[in-house]
Design a binder for these strands. Sequence first.
DNA 1: AAAAAAC
Length: 632
Amino acid sequence: MPKNKKPAGGSRAQSFEPRYGAKKTSYQDAKRRPGQSSAGKPGSKSPSHRGYRPEAEEAAPKKQRWSAQERAGRNEARGIRSQAQGDRPRRDDRSDRPARSDRPARSYDDRPVRSYDDRPVRNVGESGRRGSDRARFDGGDRNVRRYERDDRRPQGERRSYGDARPSFRDDRPRYERDDRPRRDDRQRDDRARGGRDDRPTYGGNRSDWKQDEKDAAKRQAFERHADTVHEKLQAEAIQAEEVAGVTFAGLGLGDNIVRALEDLGAASPFPIQAATITPILEGKDVLARGRTGSGKTIAFGAPLVESVLRSQAGKRREFGRSPQALILAPTRELALQIDRTVQPIARSVGLFTTQIYGGVPQARQVGALKKGVDIIIGTPGRIEDLQEQGKLDLSEIRIVVLDEADHMSELGFLEPMQRILRLVEPDAQKLLFSATLDREVAALVDEFLVDPAVYEVAGEDQDSGTIEHRVLVIDHRDKAEILTNLVDRDGKTLVFARTRAYAEMLAEQFDDAGIHAVALHGDLNQAKRTRNLERLTSGRVNVLVATDVAARGIHVDDIDLVIQADAPDEYKTYLHRSGRTGRAGRSGTVVTLITRQRRRKMTEMLDRAEIDAPFDDVRPGDDLLEALRSAE
DNA sequence: AAAAAAC
């Protein structure tokens, strides 16, 4: 019976046979030699096993990295070798070694030089750090394009803050420690001087070093202030009383849009809306401060739709048309949320929106773009990605909105923002909305906004009075118990953790204690992020443990307790996190847990945030915890 | 130092 002649795997093994042909015999010889132990040899002994390694491979020296010391030793040896020339030929004769002995040398000596030669263009663009990341994913030709793009724009022409400029990024140490810090500095410096021709090669010379030192000194001066509240930009404050009696129609919005706004629950304009709608319709660049929840989204969304509509008046909306407006947000959740507001407004006048953000398949987004949309809402990464793939045309963008611009001016966001903004026509209208209006956003303001109208909503200040702030000074070992105690309540609770891992851990911990909780952080896939947030919104779960991904923008109506399991480092983070409660005039409580050692730091931070909060020493079971649980 | 944002 042929079936039984061979075991199941037989034919398969046979088909592999030729590959092992030569070695198999030697293997078999070795194996069959009586008395020889195979113990201590790594790898499977069977050639048909996937772990099989022929003897020859074992004989080869082990691959390993050179430690710094070994490298030093090698260089020393090389010095000796060059004196005693006789050594060399003999080394080269060792036919199995040369590649190996060359490799460390190459990585030590040649690589840096070569890699700089490979990417000179990056010196010019602002893409320094990112460029190197990118190189892993694709070829270098993209960098060339970027260079052309960047070069096209005359730098430093719209500057108005003089030498204060470098402060935005200079207080970020990572740039200084980067492997090409001087390049960044020089680049920035050139912009300040308005010239960029005399940029020396990266190798640098003496005078560069001197310049660098000067820059470093400047930087240090700024770093001393980096921790303080940034100087506020000059803004026109809007009083709530001034807007009484104003209507959306009166501000210049069309009937359909006004109706759509009514459907969204916006019957009459909030102060920020009353302030910004008119100048936006007039085509002015606008810089406005207002928390999400202050009606910011409508403040830019409604006039943006109106304005796109007007510009298309009389024109047919063609299949595959390029988008006219772009709204940028720092997180996917926020982009989604903005779309939820803007889309109905746009639809009311027959315009289309689409979301362009990462973490989800591109196909649907690309499909929408192919059909043609008027307004795109998204996060920087995917927008750049699709643009580079040629699937998103930004050349016809007439209006750009940056939401949460202060956040987007932070490390890691600023440069993508700048690159995207440089892709749109320079005369496109720019609207910049930010929770804080200080010099942090000036990097963007300086370069991209022309004579902006600046608004700040008075009385909308962070400490709006509806939020009660408390600081609980606890023993670290009590932390878990106190947290579990606090979240065991009726209302919706948002817990902030500093890291993704801790957020995940806390959610599990609460679950284990019988309190249903979900997590929201960047380690989750987008589906889970969306679902978990929705669970809190819908009330199916009352406790959400999040990282700072949820600190900004996300809007859940009735969160009445925000717990900061880890105190934030920055006063702005504190403000943003606490802004998740006390929304739309409701009251809310913000509780921050700290250990004794952190008291002072916490006091300083609250000072900067201009928030008064009592500090209380708390242990598990204290009455205060009970009071906080049931508060509201 | 961490978080977010791209395959």
